Simulated scan of single mutants.
Amino acid sequence: MSDQIVRVLAKDAPIKASAISARDLVERSRQIHKTLPVATAALGRALMGCSMMGNQLKEEHGTVTLQIKGGGPLGSITVTSDSEGNVRGYVQNGEVELMEKVPGKLDVGQAVGVDGTLTVIKDIGLKEPYVGSIGLLSGEIADDITAYFAESEQIPSACALGVLVDTDQSVLCAGGYLIQLLPGADDEVISKIERGVHAVGPVTTALKEGISALELVRRVLSDFELEVLEESPVEYRCYCSRERVSRALISMGREELTALLEEQGSAELTCQFCDAVYHYSREDLEKLLSEI
């Protein structure tokens, strides 16, 4: 089953929700960045959360960037999604040794840390992007995304994200959901959602059965009648290119580019998101200089 994201509305209550199944996406990020299990789980959760947030954008060329700096051994996590939910990202220290709460349960919260912030940057084509930031609640990422929506956007939400890593360190399953209350939701609606969240339990337990993103959100919101707004594929997608890297070099300006040419004679730049390497010879750099 290919990775998928789904958006739904409840017909009988003021609720909107998204869900994602993203085993291939998270496995692709693991292969690119060669992460060990706790980093795979942390980066995977961030990728999926950002993907659902990006998929909510109405602007075709909008983007959402999630930055998590918790002070833990993983360092910072940065992920970016387009408006379709295609996402890319990296973790600063992907080779952190195994950290577990109990045997078989990765301690993502301790690896991320709580001494820092979660920052959301939404670029929807306006003069300045929207930036919202909160102090980290638990470092578990889903809890922090829930807190972000409550504090920065005043949207009561329930977010769950899970990545199950196999014994060979590959990703066995990954997915999650984001449920949000619209104006007019009463205590009965909240109680029904809470019962559904409790009944489903950890998302990886449900995903191990091979269920789809739609089935996941239907299980959580089983007390409501749902209307499916969209089902679409998502993937790990980087937009880097030699043209973009060249523009970045040109943007350094004549003085810095000349210094680079004189000191090194060539350049090798690596994309942080996909680890693609771009080589620039002396002739390449001289050509860029001539274009400034």
Rank of each mutant, 00 (worst) to 15 (best):
Asp3Gln: 09
Asp3Thr: 02
Gln4Cys: 07
Val6Cys: 02
Leu9Gln: 05
Lys11Gly: 02
Lys11Phe: 00
Asp12Phe: 06
Pro14Phe: 08
Lys16Val: 12
Ala17Tyr: 01
Ser18Gln: 11
Arg28Ser: 12
Ser29Asn: 10
Gln31Ser: 14
Gln31Gly: 14
Thr35His: 09
Thr35Asp: 14
Val38Tyr: 00
Ala46Pro: 01
Leu47Trp: 03
Met52Arg: 04
Gly54Trp: 01
Asn55Thr: 13
Gln56His: 13
Leu57Trp: 11
Lys58Met: 08
Glu60His: 12
Glu60Ala: 15
Gly62Cys: 11
Gly62Val: 10
Thr63Arg: 12
Val64Trp: 00
Leu66Gly: 00
Lys69Cys: 01
Val79Pro: 00
Asp82Asn: 14
Glu84Val: 12
Tyr90His: 12
Val91Pro: 00
Gln92Leu: 08
Gly94Phe: 00
Gly94Glu: 03
Glu97Ile: 05
Leu98Ala: 06
Leu106Lys: 02
Leu106Trp: 03
Asp107Tyr: 08
Val108Cys: 07
Ala111Met: 01
Gly113Tyr: 08
Val114Lys: 13
Gly116Lys: 05
Thr117His: 09
Ile121Lys: 02
Glu128Ser: 02
Glu128Trp: 00
Tyr130Gly: 01
Val131Gln: 01
Ile134Cys: 01
Gly139Asn: 07
Gly139Trp: 03
Thr146Phe: 05
Phe149Tyr: 13
Ser152Cys: 13
Glu153Gly: 11
Ile155Val: 15
Leu164Phe: 15
Val165Pro: 00
Asp168Gly: 10
Asp168Pro: 11
Gln169Phe: 15
Ser170Asn: 15
Ser170Leu: 12
Leu172Gln: 15
Leu172Met: 13
Cys173Glu: 12
Tyr177Gln: 08
Leu178Met: 14
Leu178Tyr: 07
Ile179Cys: 11
Gly184Phe: 06
Arg195Leu: 08
Gly196Thr: 06
Gly196Met: 01
Val197Ser: 04
Ala199Lys: 09
Gly201Leu: 11
Val203Thr: 12
Val203Asp: 07
Val203Ala: 11
Glu209Ser: 15
Ser212Asn: 08
Ser212Met: 06
Ala213Cys: 09
Arg219Gly: 13
Arg219Lys: 15
Asp223Trp: 00
Leu226Cys: 04
Glu231Met: 02
Glu235Gly: 15
Cys238Leu: 09
Cys238Pro: 12
Tyr239Cys: 11
Cys240Arg: 10
Ser241Asn: 12
Arg242Thr: 04
Val245Phe: 05
Ala248Trp: 06
Leu249Ser: 05
Arg254His: 11
Glu255Phe: 10
Glu256Leu: 15
Ala259Cys: 04
Glu262Arg: 09
Glu268Gly: 07
Thr270Tyr: 01
Cys274Asp: 14
Val277Tyr: 03
His279Tyr: 10
Tyr280Leu: 01
Arg282Phe: 03
Lys287Glu: 15
Leu289Glu: 05
Ser290Pro: 02
Glu291Ile: 07
